[in-house]
Design a protein around this nucleic acid. Structure first.
Length: 876
DNA sequence: GGGAGCACGTA
DNA sequence: CGTACGTGCTCCCC
């Protein structure tokens, strides 16, 4: 692994002042930290080879011969790694005459005998022979981060033989890295065939004369090589080791030693990563007091029916799934209660069992707790299973309680809210359930997940009730998850033809702009590198300096535009054109890659990412498809109506955030403007500038528009002056005039921050909270940021609540009216639907009605609609 | 290899 | 020194 790290990182970038290279040390340590973070082992130990001869090289002098000389830059790095391990209090073992792999094999055997789950991290394929139900191998595919856990099934899938026959296979095929030649003409396929036919290498050797053809001959000629290979690739599992496995408990690092060593190595970022990881709050409860119930794998319908009927309280449901294309399909379902658990394997369930399970899963009367409801719905759908009666999704209730967390994974929630760390049966990360881990450990994980979700739900539900947010969960977010699942499964049709055309066009534009840009300065430069651009702009061309940023001076679009206006330099124009074309090309490429087998793009909405309550969209993000520029809009034209449907239908709220501002502030002027259906910005402009609405110029209107929105985000006079290119004094006067005329807005904005400082949180109209501890920070920058967040969150969050209600209304009404039209996308204030022939009027009527009725505000909610054959057509 | 920083698309 | 996001690129780490 140290060698892997060495070749992954350029040595010239890593050295101490004294000239000692440290790239392997850095890479190895980084890799180990990642491994510890991901796998959360309880024990850890590292084994090293020595330079001295081993029993293998003594038997076969050419063993590992023919290798290139160790690069000079590698010297000394192993010793440094050992020092790093010592500072981290991780034991290291080397034994004269043996290889690291033998030590690892022995440790694995000891761990397994003690009933532990063992993970072997090794770049040597010989480690595959160690794989059992309790031992997995992490073998780096390429580099040092792509390391999928290999289990028996994975080895079989790759080599067509079980792990305990891998050494037989390797003996026949040979191993170049160890200078062990195999049988000429025999590759993995042939070797696997023989092994499976004769039950292993012994069988093959007994029947060596029965094997025909050229390869048979070749085998007979090389039997001794094969026997030798097999002797040499066999790893010892019964060595005497200087360290007992009980003494490899993973501990906090020796801080002083780390400080000193990392200073010498100049490992500053690694030191931070290390201390961040071990500096976390000590969790006192290791989960020992919580008994995860034992599970039973159910095969009989009657047994399941009885188990289900004995239910008195909530049952947790955890769905195991495997990837199918870009989607997932359920493979098994774990049902967990406080004192017992069952697992149903969907692959082997008979019709009767399927029916009992399916009926119960769908039943609204059987209360269920899940984690990641939307994912469960989507995985169960291809099996024809429906999930109903869900009363809590802990990934959502956890979010409603604390909406600005980065992660809502079960182990994280459990640590934070229950102060309990659960030792995992398998591994948390790397999506181990995808890899066909043996069923038992997958089931145990699922049961544990269900159990933790039950505990968390018991904790969360009363908390939500206490703060009056129970309805937000049960009446809004949970039903919305089901609606979103449908939208994601449906996806949106795209025109592959337009995709290809656009890609070609944007690529041509990009190339043309690049050529012209190079011509303008007489040489090449990486236009995608801000650093290189800074050199060209500010040193070579001596253009005026722009805004200062951490790495020098910004080259962002606004600054380039200003520079272009000032200097008229051709390079700037071409650079801007290149930026636009590159951005669009990348976006089209990303979209192209996301087209699923059904020819559609299926985004994923995250219900627990945006702290304000908005949805977010990823893989790909369909909430940032261009609309402003002419070229950008062509990307929107990629999204088209499906065959058999009549058109796309887009509906968006008109100025919803300003309307919410009017509602929340109760400002009489704003309310009147909306009540009269006036052009708001013109109306506000006439009052701020003291002219009649007809006399408001477009410049005045756009100033007022920028200000109105800006105020909802905590705009300062400084920010406004920048945006409108006026002096700070002018901006200040503008804001004062605005507030003088719309005093309700000023009072409201002031009040929001004051109240938030008292309560510690802001609330939306629906009672969705966002906690802002930084409002009382002594750090001015943090405090002022929190203040701006406090201004914006109720507005943005209320808008999010409203459109979520509208989506539930639209979905319910489509169903109630038996329409075949369907909802496809949500973009914060916009919904996109696909209309079935003949349903256009009905869809328009119901969407406008449901969006308009989603909230009772002091001002009307207006909805703009459009139709077309593409999304772009429909948004006009 | 992993993360920070920058840039930029949307509401 | 206006909020909320996701993605992709370059460069640095030492």
């Amino acid at each position: 692994m140290a060698f892997r790290a060495f070749y992954a990182l350029p040595p010239e970038n890593f050295s101490t002042e004294s000239g000692q290279h440290t790239n392997a040390v850095h890479g190895f340590t980084s890799m180990l930290l990642t491994m510890i973070r991901q796998q959360k082992p309880t024990h850890a130990v590292v084994a090293f080879d020595l330079d001295t001869p081993t029993f293998r090289s003594l038997e076969y002098a050419e063993y590992k011969g023919g290798r290139n000389k160790t690069p000079e830059e590698f010297y000394g790095q192993i010793d440094l790694i050992i020092k790093v391990m010592a500072a981290m209090r991780i034991p290291t073992i080397s034994v004269d005459g043996f290889e690291a792999d033998d030590i690892i094999a022995t440790l694995a055997a000891q761990g397994e005998a003690a009933g532990w789950d063992v993970l072997v991290v090794s770049g040597d394929r010989d480690a595959f022979q160690l794989i059992t139900e309790k031992v997995l191998v992490l073998y780096p595919k390429k580099g040092i981060s792509d390391i999928p856990p290999m289990d028996a099934a994975a080895v079989e899938a790759k080599y067509l033989v079980p792990p305990d026959r891998y050494s037989d296979l390797a003996a026949l095929v040979g191993e170049t890295a160890d200078n062990l030649p195999g049988v000429p003409g025999v590759g993995p396929k042939t070797a696997a065939k023989w092994i499976n036919q004769y039950g292993g290498l012994e069988g093959i050797l007994e029947n060596v004369d029965a094997i025909g053809g050229k390869v048979g001959e070749s085998l007979r000629a090389h039997v001794e090589d094969v026997k030798r290979n097999r002797r040499l690739n066999h790893l010892l599992r019964d060595m005497e080791l200087p360290v007992a496995i009980e003494d490899t408990v993973l501990q906090s690092p020796d801080r002083e030693a780390v400080e000193e060593l990392f200073d010498a190595l100049a490992f500053n970022t690694l030191r931070k990563r290390l201390f961040d990881m071990f500096g976390e709050e000590e969790i006192t409860d290791d989960g020992a007091g919580h008994e995860v119930p034992a599970h039973q794998v159910v095969t009989e319908a009657a047994f399941l029916a009885t188990w289900l009927a004995s239910a008195t309280a909530k049952t947790a449901v955890d769905v195991l799934s495997r990837p199918v294309g870009l989607l997932r399909e359920a493979t098994a379902v774990a049902l967990v209660r406080a004192d017992s658990a069952v697992v149903v394997d969907l692959g082997s369930a008979d019709a009767a069992l399927d029916t009992v399970l399916g009926t119960w899963l769908a039943s609204a009367d059987a209360p269920k707790v899940v984690h990641e409801y939307k994912e469960a719905i989507k995985a169960l759908a291809p099996r024809g299973l429906v999930l109903g009666g869900v009363v809590d999704d802990t990934s959502i209730s956890g979010y409603l309680i604390q909406p600005d967390r980065r992660s809502y994974e079960l182990p994280d929630l459990s640590q934070v809210h229950l102060k309990v760390t659960f030792a995992t049966a398998g591994q948390e990360s790397a999506g181990q359930l995808d890899l066909g881990l043996d069923a038992d450990s997958g089931y145990a994980d699922a049961v544990q997940h269900g159990y933790v979700a039950l505990l968390l739900s018991e904790h969360f539900v009363p908390m939500l009730a206490e703060r009056g947010a129970a309805a937000l969960l049960t009446e809004l977010e949970l039903p919305l998850a089901a609606v979103l699942a449908e939208m994601e499964l449906t996806g949106i049709d795209v025109s592959e033809e337009r995709l290809a055309t656009l890609l070609a066009d944007f690529t041509a534009m990009m190339d043309a702009a690049q050529t012209a840009a190079f011509a303008a300065i007489g040489h090449e430069v990486n236009l995608g590198s801000p650093k290189q651009l800074q050199e060209v702009l500010f040193e070579e061309l001596q253009l005026p300096k722009t805004k200062k940023i951490k790495t020098g001076y910004t080259t962002d679009a606004a600054s380039l535009k200003a520079l272009l206006e000032k200097t008229g330099h051709e390079f700037l124009a071409q650079l801007m054109a290149h930026r636009e074309a590159t951005k669009l090309k990348q976006m089209v490429e990303t979209l192209k890659k996301s087209v699923a087998a059904d020819g559609r793009i299926h985004t994923t909405y995250a219900q627990n990412v945006a702290a304000t309550g908005r949805l977010s969209s990823n893989n790909p993000n369909l909430q940032n498809i261009p609309i402003r520029s002419e070229e950008g809009r062509r990307v929107r034209d990629i999204f088209v109506v499906s065959d058999g449907y009549e058109c796309l239908f887009a509906a968006d709220y008109s100025q919803i955030e300003m309307r919410i501002m009017a509602h929340l502030s109760g400002d009489a002027g704003l309310i009147q403007a909306y009540a009269e259906g006036e052009d708001l910005h013109r109306y506000v402009g006439s009052h701020v500038f003291g002219v009649s609405p007809q006399e408001v110029t477009s410049a005045m209107r756009s100033k007022v528009k920028a200000m109105s929105y800006g105020l909802a985000y905590g705009l300062t006079s400084f920010g406004l002056s920048k945006q409108l290119e006026i002096s700070v004094d002018e901006a200040r006067t503008l804001i004062k005039d605005y507030f003088d005329r719309f005093g309700g807005v000023r009072d409201y904005l002031r009040g929001v921050v004051e109240q938030a400082r008292i309560d510690g949180y802001t609330s939306t109209i629906e009672g969705r909270r966002r906690y802002l501890p930084d409002l009382s920070s002594t750090d001015r920058q943090l405090r002022e940021l929190a203040e701006r967040i406090a201004l914006n969150s109720p507005i943005q969050g209320s808008a999010a609540d409203i459109i979520k209600h509208a989506m539930l209304g639209v979905a319910a009404e489509l169903k109630a009216q038996g329409l075949k039209s369907r909802m496809l996308l949500q973009v914060h204030d916009e919904l996109v639907l696909e209309v079935w022939p003949g349903e256009r009027d009905a869809v328009q009527t119901l969407v406008v009605a449901q969006m308009g009725a989603a909230a009772e505000l002091k001002v009307p909610l207006e909805v703009q609609v459009g139709i077309g054959t593409s999304w772009n057509d429909a948004s006009h």
